[in-house]
């Protein structure tokens, strides 16, 4: 192995020519030729609006806030901004319904920032007691399908639900205090 030690090897500056001749040309006319990426490459993501239930799990997992959850006028929006995305695909890992698909797209430069934004809009369920919107319709269907017993209280938002349980408990004990 010692004769392989580069520091002690003897060769001349012509060695570079030899390497160049043997190697030939390795660059390619990139924007006009296929990019050099493997099948494993992680690129932009795509949210399937048919499948997405608007649970927001991806939003919580996304490290750079490329995914945002916006609630407005009884609607919930999952907003994907490619400009912030780091293509980590953490969102894909956590999505409960596999609504997110990873693509190999990376040539995303554009002069119109709207091209970089993708929004999935969901209609929300209103709480049967207080009327505030707290989950999407699809989320409700999903939960009921997964856990049928929940059907009885699913239409209350978590706060009202807690209140209801507590009140029920207190009542059973004969108390009259209202949960704050």
């Amino acid at each position: 192995m010692s004769e392989d030690k580069p520091a002690t090897s003897r060769s001349t500056i012509l060695k570079a020519l030899e390497i160049a001749l043997k190697t030939g040309r390795v660059t390619r006319k990139y924007p006009f030729a296929e990019p050099l990426i493997t099948d494993e490459f992680r690129g932009r993501i795509e949210i399937d609006e048919e499948k997405c239930i608007g649970c927001g799990a991806c939003v919580l997992a996304c490290p750079p806030n490329a995914l945002e959850l916006i609630e407005e006028n009884g609607q919930r929006m999952i907003k994907y901004f490619i400009g912030r995305c780091i293509y980590c695909w953490r969102c894909i890992d956590v999505c409960p319904v596999n609504a997110i698909r990873g693509t190999r797209d990376f040539e995303l430069a554009t002069d119109n920032i709207d091209d970089l934004v993708d929004i999935v809009v969901h209609d929300m369920v209103k709480c049967s007691s207080c009327g505030s919107a707290f989950m999407t319709i699809r989320q409700k269907i999903y939960v009921i399908k997964k856990a049928p017993l929940t059907e009885n209280y699913i239409d209350k938002d978590p706060k009202c639900r807690r209140e209801k349980t507590l009140n029920a408990l207190l009542k059973r004990r004969g108390g009259v205090m209202k949960y704050e």
């Binding site: 090897s9 001349t12 570079a16 030899e18 390497i19």
Partner: peptide
């Protein structure tokens, strides 16, 4: 390995 030889041959 070849590359290193070429590099270190440059005075």
């Amino acid at each position: 390995m070849e590359y290193l030889k070429a590099l270190l041959a440059v005075p």
